[in-house]
Simulated scan of single mutants.
Amino acid sequence: MPVRLKKFLGAIILIVLVVVYAVLATAIATVYLAASSGWVHLAYFLFSGILWVVPAMLVIKWMETAPRR
């Protein structure tokens, strides 16, 4: 796969990942943490705010690998 195409697809995947992850994290917090204290909300959003980095790192690593010859 050409490098430009791989980076374009990776950018699209990253954008979709961030949007879907943000909506899901907020929906889960709304449903399950509505009556919780502020500390629980803080802990949840700190954890979920860092968790999206793992799949994003995998996509970026895939984007940066050299094409096979």
Rank of each mutant, 00 (worst) to 15 (best):
A11G: 11
Y44G: 06
V54L: 06
M63H: 08
L33Q: 03
G49K: 01
I13N: 04
L58D: 14
P2V: 00
F47C: 07
W62I: 07
K6H: 08
I13Y: 04
I28W: 01
G10L: 02
K61D: 08
G38A: 05
Y44F: 05
T30L: 01
V54N: 09
K61Q: 10
P55T: 12
A11F: 05
F45W: 02
Y32I: 02
A56G: 05
I28K: 12
E64F: 13
L24K: 10
A11M: 01
L46H: 07
M57N: 13
I50A: 12
M1T: 13
T30W: 01
V53H: 12
Y32P: 03
G10S: 09
R4W: 14
M57L: 13
G38L: 06
L5N: 12
L51P: 05
V23R: 09
V40F: 04
H41L: 08
A35S: 14
A34I: 09
V20F: 01
L51K: 03
P55S: 10
A22S: 12
L14I: 06
M1R: 14
Y44L: 00
H41C: 07
I50T: 13
T30P: 02
R4G: 15
A35G: 15
T30G: 06
I50K: 12
S48E: 09
I50Q: 13
P2Q: 01
